[in-house]
Protein backbone atom coordinates (compact mmCIF):
# COMPACT_ATOMS: atom_id res chain seq x y z
CA UNK A 1 0.00 0.00 0.00
CA UNK A 2 2.83 2.32 0.85
CA UNK A 3 4.55 1.66 -2.44
CA UNK A 4 1.34 2.18 -4.33
CA UNK A 5 0.82 5.45 -2.62
CA UNK A 6 4.37 6.54 -3.32
CA UNK A 7 3.85 5.99 -7.06
CA UNK A 8 0.56 7.78 -7.01
CA UNK A 9 2.02 10.66 -5.16
CA UNK A 10 5.00 11.08 -7.48
CA UNK A 11 2.61 11.33 -10.38
CA UNK A 12 0.56 13.81 -8.49
CA UNK A 13 3.50 16.12 -7.90
CA UNK A 14 4.69 15.88 -11.50
CA UNK A 15 1.30 16.72 -12.87
CA UNK A 16 0.64 19.76 -10.77
CA UNK A 17 3.56 22.07 -10.39
CA UNK A 18 2.09 24.37 -7.82
CA UNK A 19 2.61 25.23 -4.24
CA UNK A 20 -0.65 23.97 -2.79
CA UNK A 21 -1.57 20.30 -2.68
CA UNK A 22 -4.61 18.42 -1.49
CA UNK A 23 -3.66 15.14 0.04
CA UNK A 24 -5.97 12.20 -0.05
CA UNK A 25 -5.86 11.15 3.57
CA UNK A 26 -3.93 7.96 4.05
CA UNK A 27 -4.83 7.36 7.60
CA UNK A 28 -3.14 4.97 9.92
CA UNK A 29 -5.61 4.01 12.57
CA UNK A 30 -4.26 2.23 15.54
CA UNK A 31 -5.13 -1.26 16.51
CA UNK A 32 -6.33 -1.96 20.02
CA UNK A 33 -2.89 -1.33 21.46
CA UNK A 34 -1.08 1.96 21.94
CA UNK A 35 -0.45 3.51 18.57
CA UNK A 36 2.43 5.79 19.27
CA UNK A 37 5.13 5.76 21.87
CA UNK A 38 8.56 7.24 22.30
CA UNK A 39 11.16 6.27 24.84
CA UNK A 40 13.71 8.98 25.45
CA UNK A 41 15.63 7.96 28.53
CA UNK A 42 15.89 5.09 30.95
CA UNK A 43 15.64 6.00 34.59
CA UNK A 44 19.41 5.67 34.99
CA UNK A 45 20.06 7.86 31.98
CA UNK A 46 17.64 10.48 33.29
CA UNK A 47 19.36 10.44 36.69
CA UNK A 48 22.72 10.98 35.02
CA UNK A 49 21.32 13.71 32.80
CA UNK A 50 19.96 15.56 35.84
CA UNK A 51 23.06 15.17 38.03
CA UNK A 52 26.03 14.32 35.80
CA UNK A 53 28.53 14.56 38.66
CA UNK A 54 26.66 12.25 41.03
CA UNK A 55 28.58 9.16 42.11
CA UNK A 56 25.92 7.58 44.29
CA UNK A 57 22.15 7.26 44.18
CA UNK A 58 20.26 6.34 47.32
CA UNK A 59 16.72 5.12 46.76
CA UNK A 60 14.38 6.70 49.28
CA UNK A 61 10.87 5.74 48.14
CA UNK A 62 8.01 7.31 50.05
CA UNK A 63 4.80 5.41 50.86
CA UNK A 64 2.11 8.05 51.25
CA UNK A 65 -0.65 7.65 53.81
CA UNK A 66 -4.20 8.67 52.87
CA UNK A 67 -3.82 11.75 55.05
CA UNK A 68 -0.60 12.75 53.32
CA UNK A 69 -2.22 12.27 49.91
CA UNK A 70 -5.09 14.49 50.98
CA UNK A 71 -2.65 17.14 52.25
CA UNK A 72 -0.78 17.21 48.94
CA UNK A 73 -4.05 17.41 47.03
CA UNK A 74 -5.20 20.32 49.16
CA UNK A 75 -1.92 22.19 48.88
CA UNK A 76 -1.43 21.70 45.12
CA UNK A 77 -5.03 21.46 43.96
CA UNK A 78 -4.01 18.41 41.90
CA UNK A 79 -5.31 14.85 42.53
CA UNK A 80 -2.78 12.32 43.85
CA UNK A 81 -3.21 8.97 42.08
CA UNK A 82 -0.49 6.76 43.49
CA UNK A 83 0.45 5.79 47.03
CA UNK A 84 4.11 5.33 46.29
CA UNK A 85 6.44 8.09 45.17
CA UNK A 86 9.83 6.87 43.97
CA UNK A 87 12.63 9.18 45.03
CA UNK A 88 16.42 9.06 44.76
CA UNK A 89 18.92 11.24 46.60
CA UNK A 90 21.97 12.13 44.49
CA UNK A 91 25.40 12.33 46.13
CA UNK A 92 28.90 13.18 44.97
CA UNK A 93 30.93 11.26 47.49
CA UNK A 94 29.35 12.33 50.77
CA UNK A 95 28.08 15.68 49.42
CA UNK A 96 24.33 15.77 48.90
CA UNK A 97 23.43 17.23 45.48
CA UNK A 98 19.65 16.98 45.23
CA UNK A 99 16.66 14.79 44.47
CA UNK A 100 15.26 12.96 41.49
CA UNK A 101 11.56 12.08 41.71
CA UNK A 102 10.04 9.61 39.26
CA UNK A 103 6.43 10.29 38.37
CA UNK A 104 3.76 9.48 35.82
CA UNK A 105 0.81 11.44 34.50
CA UNK A 106 -2.20 10.23 32.56
CA UNK A 107 -4.09 12.41 30.12
CA UNK A 108 -7.11 11.69 27.99
CA UNK A 109 -4.94 10.34 25.20
CA UNK A 110 -1.50 10.10 26.68
CA UNK A 111 0.55 8.50 29.41
CA UNK A 112 3.84 10.08 30.35
CA UNK A 113 6.62 8.89 32.59
CA UNK A 114 8.90 11.70 33.68
CA UNK A 115 11.32 12.87 36.37
CA UNK A 116 11.59 16.06 38.35
CA UNK A 117 15.07 16.89 39.61
CA UNK A 118 15.29 19.23 42.58
CA UNK A 119 18.31 21.11 43.87
CA UNK A 120 19.26 20.31 47.47
CA UNK A 121 17.26 23.32 48.71
CA UNK A 122 14.19 22.25 46.75
CA UNK A 123 14.17 24.47 43.65
CA UNK A 124 13.57 22.91 40.25
CA UNK A 125 16.75 21.81 38.55
CA UNK A 126 15.47 19.88 35.55
CA UNK A 127 12.47 18.11 34.05
CA UNK A 128 12.98 15.19 31.67
CA UNK A 129 10.39 13.09 29.88
CA UNK A 130 11.36 9.41 30.00
CA UNK A 131 8.56 7.91 28.00
CA UNK A 132 5.55 9.20 26.12
CA UNK A 133 2.71 6.98 24.98
CA UNK A 134 -0.38 7.98 23.10
CA UNK A 135 -3.23 5.61 23.62
CA UNK A 136 -6.98 5.29 23.81
CA UNK A 137 -8.83 6.80 26.73
CA UNK A 138 -10.63 3.60 27.65
CA UNK A 139 -7.35 1.71 27.74
CA UNK A 140 -5.59 4.22 29.90
CA UNK A 141 -7.98 3.68 32.80
CA UNK A 142 -7.31 -0.04 32.93
CA UNK A 143 -5.10 -1.03 35.84
CA UNK A 144 -3.47 -3.79 33.84
CA UNK A 145 -2.43 -1.47 31.07
CA UNK A 146 -1.09 1.06 33.54
CA UNK A 147 1.00 -1.48 35.37
CA UNK A 148 2.49 -2.72 32.12
CA UNK A 149 3.54 0.81 31.33
CA UNK A 150 4.64 2.05 34.69
CA UNK A 151 6.06 -1.14 36.08
CA UNK A 152 9.23 -0.77 34.05
CA UNK A 153 12.07 -2.18 36.10
CA UNK A 154 14.87 0.02 37.28
CA UNK A 155 17.69 -0.24 34.79
CA UNK A 156 15.65 -1.82 32.01
CA UNK A 157 17.52 -1.42 28.76
CA UNK A 158 15.77 0.61 26.11
CA UNK A 159 16.98 0.93 22.58
CA UNK A 160 16.88 4.58 21.74
CA UNK A 161 16.03 5.93 18.32
CA UNK A 162 14.42 2.76 17.13
CA UNK A 163 11.04 3.18 15.58
CA UNK A 164 10.83 6.72 16.81
CA UNK A 165 8.70 8.74 14.46
CA UNK A 166 8.74 12.47 14.03
CA UNK A 167 5.23 13.76 14.38
CA UNK A 168 3.88 16.97 12.96
CA UNK A 169 0.32 17.78 13.86
CA UNK A 170 -2.06 19.07 16.45
CA UNK A 171 -0.14 20.50 19.35
CA UNK A 172 -0.21 18.27 22.41
CA UNK A 173 -0.71 20.09 25.64
CA UNK A 174 1.86 19.57 28.37
CA UNK A 175 -0.51 20.77 31.08
CA UNK A 176 -0.65 17.38 32.80
CA UNK A 177 3.09 17.50 33.36
CA UNK A 178 2.80 21.11 34.54
CA UNK A 179 0.17 19.95 37.04
CA UNK A 180 2.48 17.10 38.02
CA UNK A 181 5.23 19.61 38.77
CA UNK A 182 2.87 21.50 41.10
CA UNK A 183 1.89 18.26 42.83
CA UNK A 184 5.52 17.16 43.31
CA UNK A 185 6.56 20.56 44.66
CA UNK A 186 3.84 20.18 47.29
CA UNK A 187 5.05 16.62 47.94
CA UNK A 188 8.55 18.03 48.50
CA UNK A 189 7.42 20.84 50.80
CA UNK A 190 5.09 18.71 52.91
CA UNK A 191 6.79 15.32 52.98
CA UNK A 192 10.27 15.11 51.52
CA UNK A 193 11.87 18.32 52.77
CA UNK A 194 13.97 17.78 55.91
CA UNK A 195 12.14 19.61 58.67
Amino acid sequence: MDLLYRCYYTTFITMFDKSLYWLTPIVVIASATACFSVQYLTLEQAQRACFPTATQWIATPVELTRDQMALIEKDSGIPVRFHEQKVWAAYHGSAFLGWVILDSVLGKHEAIQWVLALEKEGSIRQIEILEYKETFGSEIRQKKWQSQFFGKKHGAKLKLNQDIQNISGATLSSRHVTQGVKRLLSFYELILKPH
Binding site: Y9, V28, I29, H109, E134, I167, G169
Partner: peptide, 17 residues
Protein backbone atom coordinates in the same frame (compact mmCIF):
# COMPACT_ATOMS: atom_id res chain seq x y z
CA UNK B 1 10.46 9.58 8.77
CA UNK B 2 7.79 12.18 9.43
CA UNK B 3 4.17 11.42 10.20
CA UNK B 4 1.40 13.97 10.24
CA UNK B 5 -1.11 13.61 13.06
CA UNK B 6 -4.54 14.36 11.66
CA UNK B 7 -6.47 13.62 14.83
CA UNK B 8 -5.80 11.60 17.96
CA UNK B 9 -4.91 8.09 16.71
CA UNK B 10 -5.07 9.13 13.06
CA UNK B 11 -1.92 9.74 11.13
CA UNK B 12 -0.84 10.40 7.63
CA UNK B 13 2.19 8.24 7.17
CA UNK B 14 3.83 8.47 3.83
CA UNK B 15 6.01 10.54 1.58
CA UNK B 16 5.55 14.25 1.92
CA UNK B 17 6.46 16.67 -0.85
Amino acid sequence: DIWVRLAPHQYHQGPLP
